[in-house]
């Protein structure tokens, strides 16, 4: 499963691939950064719906985008985060800086 992007207003949703490692995260980082620069993005939603594997390269990818968003005054969220991925994100302390949702939060909360 490859990654893809959806842009709604200033929100960029990153539909993450099934496996996030050093190999798959490099292109993902580049493409995400290009969209942030060109499309005036102020919120990134990382959608974990299809993710079955993620190592610390995925943590670096998320934290790197978080730094960019913080610099721009924007926010980062993780949605559709399953049990395994919650464990990985918690272990890395990511929940301290971004909001993590098991499901997808209501659309109204995103506006």
């Amino acid at each position: 499963m490859e990654h893809s992007f959806t842009i709604t207003g200033t929100t960029l949703t990153v539909h993450l691939p099934s496996e996030i490692d050093h190999h798959s995260s490099r292109q993902l980082c580049q493409e995400t950064d290009r969209l942030i620069q060109r499309r005036n993005i102020r919120r990134i939603l990382f959608d974990f719906h299809d993710v079955s594997f993620m190592d610390s390269s995925g943590i670096g990818m998320i934290l790197g985008r978080y730094k960019t968003m913080r610099f721009l005054g924007g926010t980062v969220m993780a949605v559709n985060v399953g049990e395994r991925m919650q464990r990985v994100l918690t272990l890395a302390g990511v929940y301290k800086v971004i909001d993590i949702y098991e499901g997808a939060p209501e659309q109204s909360r995103l506006l």
Binding site: C29, S56, S57, I59, G60, M61, L63, G64, L91, A92
Partner: peptide, 14 residues
């Protein structure tokens, strides 16, 4: 600079 989180060994340990 390469977006490394510095969590590799911590993950192996965990």
């Amino acid at each position: 600079e390469c977006d490394r989180a510095g969590m590799g060994f911590a993950f192996m340990e965990a």
